[in-house]
């Protein structure tokens, strides 16, 4: 449980962070809340030789609403999402999902940018952003680009983010529509064994821990668009997926859970 040796740099700004990343190449990793990266380092599953600490970039901690969009700074803590009155108003789904991440200590350290960049298919907020049809703003040496959440995740802990890019902002459309989030786990602090996010009255449905990325349940969305009932649509939740096998659930049980939880989420989101 002792990490390998590493050097530590404090970034003064996003630009500084990006130039440090450029300087150290793929040996360097950004450190935000550290609640995914440091456990991996302790198990020596990650052995970055340089950590670039962006945790003190307070100018990237904000929640702004306007023009039908909610813009959230990448360093915003889960607990800030959870307790923000503005977010509860503008995007109640995101606030509510943030409250289900880990435990209070995790929520006070973990950041929205960190959980998106980490691209863990078992994480809650990436799936919520996906169902909401969000956008990720990434800054690199050549400037900023906007990436649709649907295009962002590419595999287990992998995304389209380049080694020298940093997420600076996450945007979601204001108003969640009819929404619900079902998180199924065994202990309150754990990641979802399976999770289902429903936004926009069923126009956005995504699945947690049902494959190598957070997954848009396009079969469910299409069935609903075609007039299927919640129960009928939910029956398709696991179709074509290759869910993981682990100590908590094998693929068969996971698929069953996905169907049960999708129906529950749709019903709770007001889809009959």
């Amino acid at each position: 449980m002792i990490p390998a040796a590493f050097d530590y740099e404090v970034a003064e700004s996003a630009d500084h962070a990006i130039s440090l990343l450029g300087e150290h190449g793929d040996d360097a990793k950004l450190l935000a809340g550290g609640h995914s990266l440091i456990p991996m380092m302790r198990y020596r599953l990650a052995t970055p030789s340089v950590l670039v600490d962006v945790g003190r970039l307070d100018d990237l901690r904000y929640i702004r609403t306007g023009n039908g969009t909610v813009s959230i700074g990448a360093l915003t803590r889960h607990s800030e999402l959870e307790h923000s009155a503005a977010l509860a108003e503008a995007c109640p789904m995101l606030a509510s999902v943030a409250a289900l991440v880990g435990d209070p200590a995790v929520r006070h350290r973990g950041t929205l940018g960190g959980t998106i960049a980490h691209a863990d298919p078992a994480s809650d907020l990436p799936a919520a952003v996906l169902a909401l049809g969000g956008t990720i703003v990434a800054q690199g040496p050549g400037g900023s680009r906007e990436i649709a959440a649907t295009d962002f995740f590419t595999g287990y802990f992998e995304s389209v983010l380049a080694d020298d890019e940093m997420i600076t902002e996450v945007r979601v459309p204001a108003g969640s529509g009819g929404w619900n989030y079902q998180k199924f786990n065994r202990r309150a602090q754990d990641w979802a064994i399976v999770g289902v996010a429903v936004a926009g009255g069923g126009s956005g449905v995504s699945l947690v821990n049902m494959g190598s990325t957070p997954i848009r349940a396009s079969g469910v969305e299409a069935a609903l668009a075609g007039g299927a009932s919640a129960a009928e649509a939910a029956a398709a939740a696991a179709d074509g997926l290759d869910p993981p096998d682990d100590l908590n659930a094998d693929a068969e049980y996971r698929s069953h859970l996905a169907r049960v939880l999708t129906e529950r989420a749709l019903n709770a989101a007001g889809v009959a």
């Binding site: 198990y43 435990d103 065994r186 202990r187 309150a188 602090q189 754990d190 100590l247």
Partner: peptide
């Protein structure tokens, strides 16, 4: 199940 993520010691919440 060699770590406390896989070996489920319950907390006060459970």
């Amino acid at each position: 199940s060699a770590n406390l993520g896989d070996y489920l010691v319950p907390s006060a919440a459970e």
